[in-house]
């Protein structure tokens, strides 16, 4: 059971940041999907719900998704559905159900650096960057590598390029966490191949990306890229699957995602 002694609704980001930094043990609330789990005592909770971070906006060269945008909005908003073939929308569609997705946020999903995360894998494939208040912009990849503390995530920024992307995963049951997930993208001759829930965090597979850049995307190169991914990455065991199994399905997921991209191209 969650216990919160004090909830603060800061009037602006500056105040929010000052609170996070000023009060030890203070916690930023996202959609609370995870914060509520188990028993936990929070002295000071900081609620960003009134700061207008629940918007998805388009700029000349980016799509910006506010930290408090729910996964359901990511799934249904025209801007995210239209982004990179809807890869982000597709990555969240099996997360439990519409009601949970209407509660939990993209900001919470990203800030938590969850290794199994589906949207993180998709965001990695479209070079997402994160804006933290006070600190500025950092690439999602750097953030996942543990650079920077959490502070306050304001938005997730996806550069607009001619992305064609796809997301694949294997799950023991449809609404379970992924045993392994994969997102790939192509923009011109540039490729991204990302594999997550290994079960450790999502990683780009540069060997496969380089191979695709050099050889172009064909049915054959898709297979090879998948093999390269399986060879380059480390896989581990968790209750959802063994490392050995993950290694076996990794090439399949990468290949299938790439073939989807090939089909769409």
């Amino acid at each position: 059971m969650l216990e919160i002694e004090n909830i603060i609704f800061p009037a602006n980001l500056g105040e929010a940041l000052a609170t996070v930094r000023g009060i030890p043990g203070s916690v930023v609330l996202g959609g609370c999907g995870y914060l509520r789990l188990g028993s936990r005592k929070i002295r000071t909770a900081i609620d960003l719900a009134r700061l207008g971070l629940d918007k998805i906006v388009e700029t000349a060269d980016t799509v910006e998704i506010g930290a408090m945008v729910t996964l359901r909005d990511v799934e249904t908003d025209a801007l995210t559905v239209g982004l990179a073939g809807g890869v982000l929308a597709k990555s969240v569609e099996n997360i439990v159900g519409v009601q949970l997705r209407k509660c939990v946020t993209l900001g919470g999903s990203v800030a938590g650096r969850y290794p199994f995360s589906d949207p993180i894998t998709a965001l990695m494939a479209v070079d997402a960057e994160l804006l933290f208040h006070g600190r500025g912009v950092i690439s999602l990849q750097d953030y996942l590598e543990g650079k920077w503390g959490r502070d306050i995530l304001v938005k997730i920024i996806v550069p607009k390029r001619q992305w064609i992307a796809a997301f694949t995963s294997v799950r023991k049951s449809v609404t379970d966490y992924a045993v392994l997930n994969c997102a790939v993208s192509k923009s011109g001759q540039d490729y991204r191949v990302v594999v997550g829930s290994r079960p450790s965090r999502a990683l780009r597979v540069t060997t496969a990306e380089n191979f695709l850049r050099e050889n172009g995307l064909t049915k054959k190169s898709a297979v090879r890229a998948g093999e390269l991914a399986a060879e380059s990455l480390q896989f581990g065991d968790n209750p959802r699957g063994s490392g050995e199994y993950r290694k076996k399905i990794c090439p399949v997921l990468v290949k299938r995602a790439l073939l989807e991209v090939l089909d769409a191209a």
């Binding site: 609370c32 999907g33 509520r36 609620d47 949970l100 209407k102 509660c103």
Partner: peptide
């Protein structure tokens, strides 16, 4: 459930279905 997994607690918040077990009353 205690984890946001079952949907039994569904109510509408501003017209959209949400899990009331995962929606903080303070908000």
């Amino acid at each position: 459930c205690d984890t946001g997994s079952c949907g039994l607690c569904t109510v509408w918040l501003d017209g959209a279905p949400v899990l009331s077990c995962t929606t903080l009353t303070a908000r």
